[in-house]
């Protein structure tokens, strides 16, 4: 394998990783802060892709699509949190019902998308400024993929800054460890949770819009993405932001190089990685939770 192939596979893998990270970090944020397992997170990716398609059709501008996707997915996410997810909080066997409720969202959103935009595949063009490749020595790398990587890194830095350096971030982190306490301190916990839900689903929508030029837009893609992101967050440790990043890079690269090594079976490698991780580190790579509950 030549060094050029390795570099270009690596960069390709990394751009996939960053898209995965956008979805997975939202999933993990919701789980960490609101203790909700949002099975429908991939559906916001799906909505993002279609919103973007719609906005581009209207305004003929790629970036209008990205903005519409981010805001639209975020608003719908907040709406669903306020109307449904919040209502089943505190019920016995809450976890199972959350999974089932969000599973219902998947079914509904999938078909709603088909109903509104039709069942056929949609394509979105890369913006002209990011079409083409960048030549570095003998390696030529697609500009669009490089842009996604840069965008991903920017988002990682911004998220890190917000979570660890601002008051909002501290409230979010406190709410994730002890929501009752934060409530006593006069913070409106439900609002924090809705907000987190909105931001997380907005990131999913952004990922959907950014991924649209690389993959075709179809109503089934939400499900593919949620399964990939699940693998990512479970590998990294549910609720752990850095775990989502690590998991995303791992899965993106495993897929990129797996295709070279075992073309036919590459799509199954992520599952194998996840199963191996869970067997040896049941709570994910970056988790140091005690294995037993406190009495």
């Amino acid at each position: 394998m030549s060094i050029e192939t390795i570099i270009s596979q690596f960069v390709g893998g990394l751009s996939v990783s960053m898209l995965l990270f956008l979805v997975a970090s939202g999933l993990t944020l919701i789980f960490g802060v609101a203790k909700v397992f949002n099975f429908a997170h991939g559906s916001f990716y799906l909505l993002g892709a279609y919103f973007s398609y719609q906005a581009i059709a209207l305004f003929n501008n790629f970036w209008a699509g990205v903005i519409a996707a981010t805001i639209g997915a975020g608003l719908i996410g907040m709406l669903l949190e306020i109307c449904f997810i919040r209502k089943i909080r505190g019920r016995s066997e809450e976890g199972a019902f959350q999974i089932l409720l969000t599973y219902a969202f998947i079914l509904i959103i999938d078909d709603a998308v088909k109903f509104i935009w039709g069942p056929e595949y949609k394509t979105i063009q890369k913006p002209p400024s990011l079409a083409g490749t960048l030549e570095i020595g003998a390696v030529s790398l697609p500009k669009y993929n490089l842009f996604i990587i840069v965008l991903g890194i920017v988002i990682v830095i911004v998220a890190w800054y917000i979570l660890s350096r601002t008051k909002t971030g501290k409230i979010i982190q406190a709410a994730s460890t002890d929501s009752q306490m934060v409530g006593l301190l006069g913070v409106n916990v439900s609002m924090v949770m809705s907000l987190v839900f909105g931001v997380a689903t907005a990131m999913g929508g952004l990922a959907g819009a950014m991924a649209a030029p690389l993959r075709t837009v179809t109503s089934g893609s939400g499900v593919e993405v949620i399964i990939e992101s699940l693998i990512v967050v479970v590998i990294g440790g549910l609720g752990n932001f850095w775990g989502a990043l690590l998991g995303a890079v791992l899965i993106g690269e495993v897929n990129a190089f797996g295709v070279l090594w075992l073309p036919q079976w590459a799509s199954l490698l992520s599952f194998v990685v996840m199963i191996v991780v869970l067997i040896f580190k049941p709570k994910g790579l970056l988790s140091n939770e005690p294995t037993r509950k406190k009495i």
Partner: peptide, 9 residues
Amino acid sequence: SFVIGIIML
């Protein structure tokens, strides 16, 4: 699936 989604909900 829309119908069963609504039923589930």
